[in-house]
């Protein structure tokens, strides 16, 4: 019983942490982007204000059942993937249920939200939404290829499909995967550009072209819930990358509060550093056309992924 209580508490803590961190990261990016473009920009906690505003709106319109379900699919995908991800290495509070899933499962669970969202956007009948969805799905076929190649490289290297084991193996050998298999890391990093959809891969929302695409018919509580889901999902993706390539939150196996806090700080530093890569790349890039984006992923990133697999085999 006590065990279960700790588990539930851990799950709730994980969710709150993922939500807060994701929202703040979003705020940071807005602020930094503004400064780079020589604007003042919103405050760092602007995302929280936006969320509060969206959730407190009273009148909403719905286009039907799938439209109503779209944010729900997204939050299911975000929370399920988060629950199956080991947040800290060997910590009492945040293992959640990560022992019951593996990489291939997460890979498939990650697309759950996008597809649900796509269905919701489809029901609105807005042609811009549908165009955005076709672009998004096409782009997904693009970046999933190098991503899965780098995952296969890691699985071969450590003979496991569990994230936990890959994390432990890195801590034991003391070498992060981004150094022991740089090609796989680079492939995954390129795939990340597509995953986070900053410029030049912001073809789904495409401001001024598709009028924010799939989300254009969502407002109020729907948009708010989607924003929450997106924040949690970005935290998940970053933590996944840190776990796979940067040895997670380091080698801290203490269950004490101080050790946990230190581990969390390490995790935050690593995730933030990683997050800045697609953001920086986005600042200096114009938008690609869809087919250019897909070809981008099938060219060098995929080649790097192949080299990564061969590297892991030798």
């Amino acid at each position: 019983m006590e065990d279960l209580a700790i588990k539930i508490l851990g799950a709730v803590l994980t969710t709150i942490m993922a939500f807060t961190v994701g929202m703040f990261y979003g705020g940071f990016v807005r602020k930094l982007t503004a400064r780079v473009q020589n604007r003042r920009g919103p405050v760092v906690y602007q995302n929280f204000i936006d969320l509060l505003k969206l959730q407190s709106k009273t009148t909403n319109i719905a286009h039907g059942f799938m439209h109503h379900m779209a944010p729900i699919w997204m939050i299911i995908a975000s929370l399920t993937t988060l629950m199956f991800l080991p947040i800290l290495n060997g910590n009492l509070w945040f293992p959640n249920i990560s022992f019951h899933g593996d990489l291939i499962f997460l890979l498939y669970m990650m697309v759950f939200g996008s597809l649900g969202m796509a269905l919701g956007a489809g029901q609105t009948g807005n042609p811009n939404s549908a165009i955005g969805v076709t672009r998004g799905l096409s782009q997904m076929v693009g970046f999933e290829i190098p991503f899965v190649m780098s995952l296969i490289a890691l699985m071969i290297q450590y003979k496991t499909t569990s994230i936990q084991d890959i994390m432990i193996a890195q801590n034991e050998s003391g070498i992060w995967n981004m150094f022991s298999n740089p090609f796989a890391f680079l492939a995954a990093l390129f795939a990340m550009f597509g995953m986070f959809r900053y410029s030049p891969f912001d073809i789904v929302g495409a401001p001024a072209e598709l009028a924010s695409g799939p989300v254009s018919e969502f407002g109020g509580k729907y948009l708010g819930t989607m924003m929450t889901a997106n924040s949690i999902f970005s935290f998940f993706k970053l933590t996944l990358y840190v776990n796979l390539f940067m040895a997670g939150a380091g080698n801290i196996n203490d269950v004490g509060i101080v050790a946990t806090l230190i581990a969390i700080v390490i995790l935050l530093i690593k995730t933030f550093a990683l997050y800045m890569v697609p953001v920086f790349y986005g600042w200096v890039s114009p938008r690609y056309r869809t087919e250019q984006a897909i070809r981008y992923f099938w060219a060098w990133p995929s080649a790097l992924g192949l080299i990564g697999i061969v590297w892991a085999l030798i």
Binding site: T59, I61, P71
Partner: peptide, 23 residues
């Protein structure tokens, strides 16, 4: 999520057709 989204503002939420959109 379903209970939250459905019950929240249940009275205010209304159905609109697929032509009632903003492009």
């Amino acid at each position: 999520a379903f209970i939250f989204l459905t019950l929240k503002g249940l009275k205010g939420t209304r159905y609109v057709s697929t032509k009632d959109i903003s492009t």
